[in-house]
Design a binder for these strands. Sequence first.
DNA 1: GTTTTTAAGACAAATTTTATCCTAATTATA
DNA 2: TATAATTAGGATAAAATTTGTCTTAAAAAC
Lengths: 146, 146
Amino acid sequence: MQITRETDYAIRCILYLAGKDGNSAVVGEISRDQAVPRTFAAKIMQKLHKAGLVVSTRGVKGGYTLNRTPEEITLLEIVEAIEGPISINICVIDKNSCERQPHCNVHPVWVEIRDLLVEKLRSYTLDKLINNNPPSGDNTTGRRRA
Amino acid sequence: MQITRETDYAIRCILYLAGKDGNSAVVGEISRDQAVPRTFAAKIMQKLHKAGLVVSTRGVKGGYTLNRTPEEITLLEIVEAIEGPISINICVIDKNSCERQPHCNVHPVWVEIRDLLVEKLRSYTLDKLINNNPPSGDNTTGRRRA
DNA sequence: GTTTTTAAGACAAATTTTATCCTAATTATA
DNA sequence: TATAATTAGGATAAAATTTGTCTTAAAAAC
Ligand code: SF4
Ligand code: SF4
């Protein structure tokens, strides 16, 4: 019940773009900075491109750029771009995958947990991750509040 | 990000015990009733035994029996008996697994999600799953409340 | 002592994960 | 126009995990 390395890498990659001025970089740079194997990173960027999260430019001066602002991209979108729809158990995305589903008391639990995951992942935007926004009510910087 | 077939099977198996009078059965019966491959079910029951969720008796008249009441066994325990400690990403159970962890802004998100999962899985007991307890405030039986 | 059951570990096929490699296609610019 | 730098896409493959099976032993009842 884990995300894959690929998904972790994908988050690193797109978060690197989000943190850069211009939200733009080439695969080589992303790979180096984020310690993601280069050819693997290339494949990952292609997936993020197909999912519409980044735009690509070929040729000299090419590279990848965020297709939206960091406030508008969520962890959920990144995870789903790599792994497909979130499902904690096969029956959650495909009821036909299990003939026991119609009379299974556990099935609704997995649906509930899936919904919980989706909601939580959607609540985190790249923006929040970069600025490490503390939950409201927290004040860990030690600065005085207004 | 899915539970394995083995874990799904394990829940079926132990839930079958919980639903039976005496909370007891042999592997052959469990396997047949729950459509779990027999030798695989045998291995699963061994894991549940090692986790202390069931007791075993060898020989004629042997079999497996719940080691506690269905009210006292949670989904969390079953999942962890099969898959080990819940971790949505490697860094959650082993910080040393990723050298980026000390300055990673995503790490706390996975910890938070792990905690959420643990809490939710712990809230479901075998008892609740058998009786399909509706959330409080629900009244799907159509019976009038007191 | 025969039958029924679990215990434990070796074995193995299938699938998924984690990549790499190669050949285009595209773009800037010398 | 050639060349260099970049992404696009598909084939390939090693490693790890999942999903089982098989075999032998141990225990218990009868
Ligand atoms: S047995 Fe229930 S929980 Fe398991 S796959 Fe089938 S429907 Fe889903
Ligand atoms: S990069 Fe962050 S989230 Fe990913 S494994 Fe490392 S610590 Fe965990």
